[in-house]
Amino acid sequence: MTIAWDAFTPWSSLAGGVLIGLSAALLILGSGRVAGISGIVGGLLRPGGPDTTWRLAFLGGLLVAPLLWRLFAVLPEAQPVAGGGLLVVAGLLVGIGTRYGSGCTSGHGVCGLSRLSPRSLVATLAFMGAGFATVYVVRHLLGA
């Protein structure tokens, strides 16, 4: 392992993380709900599912954030790592996996670890481990 010092952004990543944590804090104390993105989206896909209004409001905020950002600054660069069919496969795996696993990076990783849930710790270790292994296979064994 070498550290990618040129790509490492400690301060903006820490500050962005604090904003994400404050958002989760606001949603649990203010709206009484957990900021788990996969759960918020997934809950809308059940006919007659609970709490449609706040879910749509939260997702609206998430989608509008880049527009608000663009009023004051240039959007940060983003380089995709996958295209075409691989994106579809990845999206399906993320959709099915987060729903069976009851959460993603936000629900288990941020909120679950913040409430010291052993269940979320196991989930976070599982998806991080699978992510590390997948990138290892793709980049270093298949050489993509």
Binding site: G91, S106, A126, A133
Partner: peptide
């Protein structure tokens, strides 16, 4: 919980996107 999270992790590693 475990199998779902592992599945999610594979998709996350393939495209670099999680839901948020």
């Amino acid at each position: 919980l475990v199998l779902g999270s592992l599945t999610f992790g594979v998709g996350w590693g393939l495209a670099g996107y999680c839901p948020g």
